[in-house]
Design a protein around this nucleic acid. Structure first.
Lengths: 255, 255
DNA sequence: TGAAAAAGTTGATCGAGATCAAAAAAGCCC
DNA sequence: GGGCTTTTTTGATCTCGATCAACTTTTTCA
């Protein structure tokens, strides 16, 4: 594959075009080398990555879309244990022996699978790239830890509020219009938060009744009262206890 | 600090004496340098690491004991979002701005806090050490992800079974005596699994009634039927549905 | 070692969210 | 764009685990 092809393949990928992401940190030679030893792949909702596909290409970088790790219990209960998005790099080497989760696309997804050898070489030789990948993995770990905290003790409304804030954290806020993109379906959201789709639906309605946010569509909400949203997510019972009568909740000026 | 002192300080530490762990992978010079730029610390139950202590020494390696990340909600609910043990290396650089968790010891703990500069240098220069730290962080991430799956949809008995198996995974099995060390208290266990201490207590009793394990003490259980324990943890309702009458559950021979 | 404090267990009651059922909305495909 | 499927929402009921309270065991520390 020539250097020209490399450019063509990588130019449109977020990992290269966003200067904060992995491929943007590579030297020309490294990018060329990695490009020669990688395969892009488009997935649609429900497509999974497993078995040979994973053992040969265990390093997965996400260009676009949302990928989940799903755990299936024997009686059919399903859990989405983690969500990965643009810029995330998954290292699935030696993962099959302990982790039961499958990698499933939650919509249209573009990924790039890298040969572990070249990836490892770059990690060893390019401190700057290493730092980017390390910080990404550390973020993955802490996101998972925070998520555990969210689903362990919080109640339905609080989980939803936390999720909206998590989405807000992960996306650039364009201007001050607080329109937050919800990148997953209601069913997936329910599975991610450990609740039922019915409860998710009721929860959003409740938040809407409290005047905290507007549900613009299934794919977006508009935050109307960020302070209250934060307090609900933080488990402030003074806010929760009012039963969601429109406009009638306690107005506590400062937190 | 002389090279002799270095030896004295590090000789008794698991990170050095266990050949699979970080400090054992260092060259003599690196170990010396890191030792000069690190501080050991003994903690007792309830001691926390935060503020200046963390921003100056954000790399924390665990020699012995159990350390938790705790999240506190505004009405007092507490969650243990993650557990860290011997060999784990925590990178808490830039963590204060997004993560609300505090680092709390759950018993007697020995840690070693490292200067980020020396740590980063070793990461950049010693591929072998880098690999060990990388794999440890990856394990932390996947442990957290698996834990999310455990607490999201599983019911009380299944969570407990999963936890016992998690403990089993993390400790060397000595011979075939299936005695598993439970390194945390009941309250902490409850907070980690997102349930109440009462429910933990009832759960262990239930598992005992089913003949799956014996509760030897508050600190150890003995697995009597590993296969059933696995199936309960996996959400097999055929096993769960029998209401825990001693010896009367369905005996399904194979998987 | 023994008394006080903390942690854990057992029992009884209650409620948030699961579950079941059915209608409404959104997405899809020819 | 209209008929089809899939997803989401709404309503009614039920259940598992939370909560409250009393008791027992373990740990702590003088």
């Amino acid at each position: 594959m020539s250097s020209h092809d490399v450019k063509k393949k990588c130019k449109s990928c977020a990992l290269y075009s966003d200067s904060k992401l992995f491929c943007a940190s590579l030297s020309g030679n490294e990018l060329c080398d990695l490009s020669d030893h990688s395969r892009t792949l488009s997935m649609k909702r429900g497509d999974t990555l497993e078995g040979d596909a994973l053992s040969h290409w265990p390093i997965v970088a996400i260009d676009d879309g949302v990928v989940s790790i799903q755990h299936l219990l024997q009686d059919g209960r399903k859990t989405i244990a983690a969500l990965f998005m643009r810029g995330d790099i998954l290292d699935l080497r030696n993962i099959s022996n302990r982790n039961r989760g499958a990698l499933v696309a939650l919509g249209k997804v573009n990924i790039c699978r890298m040969a572990p050898k070249v990836f490892a070489q770059i990690m060893a030789e390019n401190p700057n790239s290493q730092k980017i990948v390390w910080e990404n993995l550390r973020d993955q770990a802490f996101r998972a830890i925070d998520h555990s905290a969210d689903i362990a003790k919080k109640q339905a409304l609080e989980k939803l509020a936390s999720f909206v804030l998590e989405c807000r954290n992960r996306q650039e806020i364009t201007g001050n219009t607080e329109v937050i993109d919800i990148p997953v379906r209601r069913v997936d959201l329910a599975e991610y938060l450990g609740m039922q789709p019915e409860t998710v639906s009721r929860g959003f309605k409740d938040l809407e009744n409290r005047g905290v946010l507007d549900v613009i569509s299934l794919k977006a909400v508009k935050i109307k009262n960020l302070q209250f949203l934060r307090r609900i997510a933080d488990g402030d019972k003074d806010v929760i206890d009012e039963k969601g009568d429109p406009g009638s909740f306690k107005v506590l000026q400062f937190g």
